[in-house]
Nucleic acid binder design. Structure first.
Length: 281
DNA sequence: CGGGTTTGACCTGCGC
DNA sequence: GCGCAGGTCAAACCCG
């Protein structure tokens, strides 16, 4: 409605003319590398920030970006975002992607997904696990694992503290794709499924789920697909500037199979990405 | 038989 | 340093 608004850590306000109302909901108290945005209309809670890369990987990734050439312009985009708190609507890859568009061109990917998630048993000592940009959805649904157009393989399930519901871990079945997602039910409202995506698909989705309509998750996931490089900060450090996501107006709520709900107080997965201080809605 | 799920063990980060 | 909780691995199992 009023357009996105928020304040980045440096105090810079940002606005856009989008039809969504994103509000800065908080920031990561631990790494301070991400901010959280909540869309009151779509009830989508989003987390935006820079990847935190160890210097080794930063170099490595910078190289791969350089080789990729052209699209994305790793450091350039990063500095742009970092310097002026631009909203992602100015990001070509976001604005150009309608709900029909795949996150990336599948075959000739300019930027291959950086292998920043080092397997724990291969990871060298001192190299930290790196988190990619994440965004979360709260969806009212009886089904835990919502169709989003991609194929996922479950690789783990864990009981979550303070929640009677386990958290499931999924990985994209595409071997070249590093995207993961976590699915968990809200302990406050069992009808609400909280899905958190981490990373970005480097390939096309396998198709639309359930007869052609797409959910908020799909629409949002497809709109929020800036090149990975844009979440890369060359110096490898945590910084962060508020980057509100593209609006989700492409999906009228009546088209959504599972209606979204308002943000409840929550623990568990939300507790993971949402600082306690902002969970008062 | 291939692909997906389950589940216990293991690893890692973090707070105390 | 220790314990806890989250995250991941991988063998066993299931299913089409």
């Amino acid at each position: 409605m009023e357009g996105k608004e928020g304040i980045d850590p440096a105090g810079t306000e940002f606005n856009s003319d989008s039809s969504s109302s994103w509000t800065l909901a908080g920031s990561d108290s631990v790494s301070d590398s991400v901010n959280y945005f909540f869309d009151k209309e779509s009830s989508i809670l989003s987390e935006f920030g820079w990847n935190i890369l160890q210097p080794d990987h930063a170099d490595e990734f910078e190289r791969s970006c350089g080789e990729a050439g052209g699209r994305g312009s790793c450091s350039g985009t990063a500095s742009n975002l970092g310097g002026s708190a631009e909203v992602p609507t100015s990001n070509p890859s976001v604005t150009s992607s309608s709900s029909e568009d795949p996150p990336e061109k599948s075959t000739d990917i300019g930027v291959k997904p950086p292998e920043i998630e080092i397997p724990s048993r291969v990871r060298k000592k001192g190299q930290k696990r790196v988190r990619q940009a994440r965004f979360a959805f709260m969806t009212k649904s009886e089904v835990d694992h919502l169709e989003d157009g991609y194929r996922w393989r479950k690789y783990g399930q864990k009981a979550v503290k303070n929640s009677p519901f386990p958290r499931s871990y999924y990985r994209c079945t595409n071997s070249k794709c590093t995207v993961k997602k976590r699915v968990e039910r809200s302990s406050e409202d069992p009808t609400i499924v909280i899905t958190t995506y981490e990373g970005q698909h480097c390939h096309q989705s396998v198709g639309f789920p359930r007869g052609g309509f797409i959910s908020h998750e799909v629409a949002f996931a497809r709109q929020f697909n800036p090149p990975i490089s844009q979440f890369y900060r060359p110096q490898g450090i945590q910084l962060h500037r508020g980057i509100p996501p593209a609006p989700t107006t492409t999906v009228p709520s009546h088209q959504v199979g599972e209606s979204t709900s308002h943000l409840p107080k929550d623990e568990g997965l939300l507790g993971d990405i949402v600082p306690p201080g902002m969970r008062s809605r």
